[in-house]
Structure formats: structure tokens, C-alpha cells
Design a protein around this nucleic acid. Structure first.
Lengths: 197, 197
DNA sequence: CAAAATTATACTTTTTTAGTATATTTTTGT
DNA sequence: ACAAAAATATACTAAAAAAGTATAATTTTG
């Protein structure tokens, strides 16, 4: 059926755009390049999207939603605080939780008025939803209530960047100690209040 | 003096180009963008380089030479095989040993005849120099002679990619074992022949 | 202060990209 | 197999971006 073919090509355009935009931002990627890589003709592209900006917006929204969804599902697994945090960090490492910096910058540096507002508002909205999820998890005792959700997010961010840090090999020498510390922190430092059990 | 100012700006252009080209390749980077980021006027740019291609070539050559130099100095430290390999892997992790893939691709995909040959020849030349260095190290018993230099290079490459692999967190669970194995391999698996001592 | 270097500006030319029209081919449902 | 719908290749125009240059003004340096 028409819609099925459509969605096949549509999906191809989206996933290719995601890949390229993630790496280079959208300014550096031409529609033609995108079409070649997605194996879609330019005409087909224009059947689905009026221009590159609208495609970029779509990618942005989709990724935000997908990120939030993954985030939610982790929090709803009701695993231990350590396990939950570990999964969140892993999500960040995969790059599935955050919008690429280069991609984001192209929105901010774009001249079209309103586009900047679009991402700012969307980003804020996504952020608020995540915070809300964490609060709910706290209510369910997945995390201690004594930590502010915002801090928890920054904490997992910091952990992810620690791990991707290229000085990794150096710290391999004493990796055993580091892992021990990290594990301990996850297991006891962030647990739900024990006394309230 | 003129040369000093010149070399200051010149160096600024080069380091900025390195940074941008590494990330995006040179096709996606405009001279204007480069100049803005390097805080150099376009006129100054054209005082040093006739065009972007020549700059890209210069960056390529410099990086190749710098990489080889670092590589050499590691091999000449006469550390243990394990320590030496560790340092080589670290070099690869820093991205100082290899030319960026995006950067390289722009050379290959460029229409200018001769440019493709330029990199192919330069790459080959750099590769041969590295192999030569390894052979020399083998003569000095830094590495066992029973491994082919080419294999050693691919091995360190594989190790580096293992470490940057985003499944790192997963393997954290049994990281202790992995490190033990890796350390053992480095210490005993690649050492110079013991009997010949 | 004078010479050299660097920059800002403004400009032309060239190249790239965006977007569209149309004829042709491929795919799909029946 | 056939008709309708979808997708593509091609070729094109318009618009935007990038390359490259000339010149006057400014900054830096000895």
C-alpha cells in the first residue's frame, strides 16, 4: 500500500538524517548527500519534507521522544538504585539519551527566527519530563529523596564523561580500585533511605 | 620579527585546521569558518596557503610526521613489551597516531587528479616507516621477533577499538578478569624471547 | 615614528545547494 | 498481466555559499 512504501522511504530518510546530523550537524549536510546516502531520490525527499529545517526538527523531536522513552523504561524496571544508575549512564554512553552537540549548535546558530526558540522550548520540555520521571522514581523509592533530580542527571552525565575519557588506559593500572569505589558509591551512596523500609 | 608573527598565525591556522578537519573532513569546512575560528583574516590565510587543498595536504603531512615521531620515541624508550604496547594503544586512543577517517575520505573522494595519489603514497610511506621502526625494535628485543610488524599494528588497533567500545559499562561487571587477562597477555604473550637472553 | 604585518570591507567569480518540472521506470494491488 | 500509484533519473533555474582578490585602514613591531 501507498503508506507502507512511503513509510519505508520516510524511515530511511529519517535514520540517515539522524546519522549524518549527529556527526556533522545539519548545516554541513546537503539534501543531495542525504538522499544519496539514504538511497532515495530528491523528489521523494521533497514529497515528505518541505526543506532541511523541517527534517531537522523532525529528527530532533523523534530523538527527544525516543530518549525519554528509553529513560522512562529504565526507571520503570524497578531495579536497584545502582543498577538503574548504571543503565542510565550506559544510555548516555550510547548517545541515545542526549542530542548531539553539533546538531544542537546548528539550531542555535541558525538565522531563522523562531528556530532557536523551537529547540529551546523543546529541550526545556524534555528536561522537565525527565525530572518529573525521576521524582516519580523517588516516590517509588528507586532513588533516595535526598538528592535533587537535577543533580542526579548531572551526576550521571559526569560519570559517562569519566568513562569516555581517553585517560582510561592510565587508570587501568588501578582500575580495580576505581571500580570498587564506583560500585560502592552506586550501591550505598545513592540508595533509597534504609530506615523508611 | 616577521617570521615570528607569521609562524604564530601560521601555527594558529594549522592547529585550527587540524581540529576542524579531524572532525568534519576538509570538504565540510570553509576557509571563512576556519579563519573565524583561528582568529585570522582571510587575507592572512591566503598569504600562507594558495587554497584549502594545500592546507589539507600540509595538515596531513604534519600529522603523519608527528604521529611517527611519537611512535618512534615510544619504541626508543626501551621499556618492557607490555609497557610499550600500552603506550602505543594509548597513542591510538588519543587519536594522535591515526589520521581521521573523515579527513582521509575527503582526499579519496576529491575530483582533483593526483590528490588521491598524494595521500595513497604518503600513507604508504608512513606505514613503511612504522614497520621499519618495529623491526628495529624487534632487533633490540623490545618485541619478540616471532610476530610480524604488520600484525602487531593491527593488534594494537584492535585493542584500542576494544577500549573505546561503548559496551564498556557492560564489561565493567567483570572488568577485573578482563584486565587480568589483558595484563597477562601484554606481559607474557608478546615479550622478547626469553631463552635468547 | 616608520615599515611591515594584519585586518576589515567590499567586491567579483565560481561552485554548491535548493528546489522544480517532466519523462521514464519500478512497484503494487487486483 | 495490467492499470494506477509511487519512485526515480535527468535536467534545469534560482538562490545561496564559498573562493579568491583589491584596497584602504588599523595594528604591531623594531
Amino acid at each position: 500500500m501507498a503508506t507502507e512504501i512511503a513509510s519505508k522511504k520516510y524511515a530511511l530518510i529519517l535514520s540517515t538524517a539522524r546519522e549524518l546530523f549527529w556527526k556533522y550537524g545539519f548545516k554541513r549536510v546537503s539534501i543531495e548527500e542525504l538522499c544519496v546516502k539514504a538511497k532515495v531520490s530528491k523528489m521523494t525527499f521533497y514529497k515528505f519534507f518541505p526543506n532541511k529545517i523541517e527534517l531537522a526538527k523532525r529528527v530532533f523531536i523523534n530523538e527527544s521522544e525516543a530518549g525519554l522513552k528509553k529513560f522512562k523504561s529504565i526507571l520503570h524496571e524497578n531495579k536497584s538504585p545502582a543498577e538503574t544508575l548504571k543503565k542510565i549512564v550506559q544510555l548516555k554512553l550510547e548517545g541515545s539519551a542526549n542530542i548531539s552537540k553539533d546538531f544542537l549548535l546548528d539550531f542555535y546558530e541558525n538565522n531563522d527566527e523562531g528556530l532557536k526558540d523551537f529547540v529551546m522550548q523543546a529541550s526545556r520540555s524534555a528536561w522537565l519530563k525527565i525530572i518529573k520521571e525521576i521524582r516519580e522514581a523517588q516516590r517509588k523509592r528507586v532513588f533516595t529523596s535526598s538528592i535533587r533530580p537535577e543533580l542526579l542527571m548531572h551526576f550521571s552525565e559526569a560519570m559517562a564523561s569519566m568513562i569516555t575519557n581517553k585517560e582510561l588506559l592510565e587508570y587501568y593500572a588501578s582500575a580495580h580500585d576505581l571500580i570498587k569505589e564506583l560500585t560502592h558509591l552506586m550501591a550505598y551512596g545513592l540508595g533509597a533511605d534504609k530506615k523508611s523500609k
